[in-house]
């Protein structure tokens, strides 16, 4: 509650330089987040949404429904790298959870099952 919220700077129309939103950070370290990883807000994130600034609050709003990292970037009109950094922070703070794509492990029987499900799904579109 004590976070000072500076005046909003029209981020949507790109008046702010993109990486100022992340405090200049461009990497998420070892935590690689896939473009198609699905982000979903936790109850805690939704409850505390007002504590977050700018894009982070928007990410929480958009991810009430599971939404991929790349979709968040497109919908917010900010670069993918920025969304990755902000989403990584939200993950650490328990405000969102992330579903990574399954490993493409050809050894595993589970992978064959997954491919069969995808195949059925595409055929029945």
């Amino acid at each position: 509650m004590s976070v000072w919220d500076p005046p909003h700077l029209q981020v949507g129309s790109r008046i702010v330089r993109p990486y100022t939103m992340t405090g200049g950070r461009t990497e998420v370290g070892e935590r690689a987040i896939a473009l198609e990883a699905l982000v979903v807000a936790t109850a805690e994130g939704v409850r505390n949404r007002h504590r977050y600034r700018w894009e982070s609050a928007e990410i929480i709003t958009l991810s009430r429904k599971e939404t991929a990292v790349i979709e968040l970037a497109a919908l917010l009109d900010v670069p993918i790298g920025v969304v990755k950094v902000l989403t990584g922070d939200l993950l650490d703070q328990g405000a969102v959870s992330i579903t990574d794509p399954p490993a493409t492990d050809t050894e595993g029987e589970g992978y064959t099952d997954l491919l069969n499900k995808v195949l059925d799904g595409i055929k029945s579109l």
Binding site: T42, E66, G94, S97, I98, T99, P101, A103, L114
Partner: peptide
């Protein structure tokens, strides 16, 4: 932090 792979929990 909560992170899962694939569809390992609930209806995700």
């Amino acid at each position: 932090s909560s992170r899962s792979e694939g569809n390992s929990e609930g209806n995700r």
